[in-house]
C-alpha cells in the first residue's frame, strides 16, 4: 500500500526539494511507499484533504485543527523552535508608522494562507479595521504581496514572517515592518491519519533521531528545520483551543 503525504503550501519555494528528499528518506526508514503531492494554493489542497486523500500532512495550525477534530489525525512532531508569526509591512516611503495610522478604506494585500491572514486581521483590530471597512485583495504569493506594496497598489501587506525574511534584500529594503506578531505557541506540525496509525511509533523514532546521522541532518537542513520535537495530544489540543479563540 502506498501512503500519501502533502505539505502546507506556505513554505518558501527554496525548500521544495527538501520535502522530496524527506519523502525519500522516510520511505527508506519505514520501508513503505509514500507519494508526495505538493500544492501551490491552500484551497485546492484543502479540498483534497477533505476528500480523505492523505495519510500524512505537514499542516499549518488552522488545518491541524480540522485534521485532528474532524478527521481523526494525530499530531506527532513539530519543527523545533519554529513558530508561525505574521508581519504587517508597508512601503518604506509610507507615512504609516504604526498600525493605528491605517484608516478605514486602507488597501490590504494578503494571500490565502489562513493563519497569516487571520493574525494579520487581528493585528488590524487595534486600528478599528476589519473586513467591512478595508479593501482586501488576495494574491497568489508573498512576492506578489510585496510587489503590490512596492508599486503603491496596497497600503499594507500580510506576510508569514519566515517568508518575509526570505524575500530578497532588495525587496525588503523597499518595505518596512509595521508590526510583527510574537505568539510563539502557534506552529506547523506533522500529522498522521487513521490509515497510517500503526506506523506512528516508527515514524516518531525516525523523526526524533533524524539529526543524529549525516543523511538525516542533510535532509533537515534542506527543509530548513533544525530537528523535530515530539508532540502529544494535549499539546495539540492546546494549540487548537488557542486557534479557536482567534477565529470569529
Amino acid at each position: 500500500m502506498t501512503f500519501n503525504l502533502t505539505v502546507s503550501p506556505d513554505f518558501a519555494p527554496d525548500h521544495i526539494s527538501g520535502w522530496y528528499f524527506f519523502n525519500t528518506w522516510l520511505q527508506r526508514k519505514l520501508d513503505v511507499g509514500i507519494h508526495l503531492e505538493l500544492y501551490d494554493n491552500f484551497e485546492a489542497q484543502r479540498n483534497d484533504i477533505r476528500a480523505d486523500k492523505f495519510d500524512m500532512i505537514y499542516a499549518n495550525p488552522y488545518d491541524a485543527s480540522m485534521l485532528v477534530r474532524e478527521m481523526g489525525f494525530q499530531a506527532i512532531a513539530r519543527p523545533a523552535s519554529k513558530s508561525d508569526e505574521t508581519v504587517i509591512a508597508v512601503n518604506a516611503e509610507s507615512l504609516f508608522q504604526t498600525v493605528e495610522d491605517l484608516k478605514p478604506g486602507s488597501r490590504v494585500a494578503t494571500t490565502d494562507d489562513p493563519d497569516v491572514h487571520t493574525m494579520g486581521m487581528i493585528m488590524l483590530e487595534s486600528a478599528d479595521l476589519d473586513k467591512s471597512n478595508t479593501d482586501i485583495k488576495q494574491h497568489s504569493s508573498y512576492v506578489v504581496v510585496a510587489k503590490n506594496l512596492l508599486n503603491g497598489d496596497a497600503d499594507a501587506g500580510f506576510f508569514l514572517k519566515e517568508a518575509y525574511d526570505e524575500l530578497s534584500e532588495l525587496i525588503r529594503s523597499k518595505m518596512r515592518v509595521l508590526v510583527s506578531s510574537e505568539i510563539s505557541v502557534v506552529h506547523h506540525s506533522l500529522l498522521v491519519g487513521p490509515r497510517m496509525v500503526e506506523h506512528i511509533p516508527a515514524i516518531q523514532t525516525a523523526l526524533l533521531t533524524m539529526q543524529d546521522d549525516d543523511k538525516g541532518k542533510g535532509v533537515l537542513e534542506s527543509m530548513d528545520i533544525k530537528h523535530w520535537e515530539p508532540m502529544d495530544s494535549e499539546q495539540t489540543e492546546f494549540m487548537i483551543d488557542l486557534i479557536d479563540t482567534l477565529i470569529e
Binding site: E100, I122, M123, E125, S126, A127, D128, F238, D241, L242, D244, T245, L246
Partner: peptide
C-alpha cells in the same frame, strides 16, 4: 478554560 487576550482599539 483557555483565555487569549489581544490589543483592543482605543475606541472600544
Amino acid at each position: 478554560y483557555t483565555s487569549v487576550r489581544r490589543k483592543p482599539s482605543r475606541s472600544k
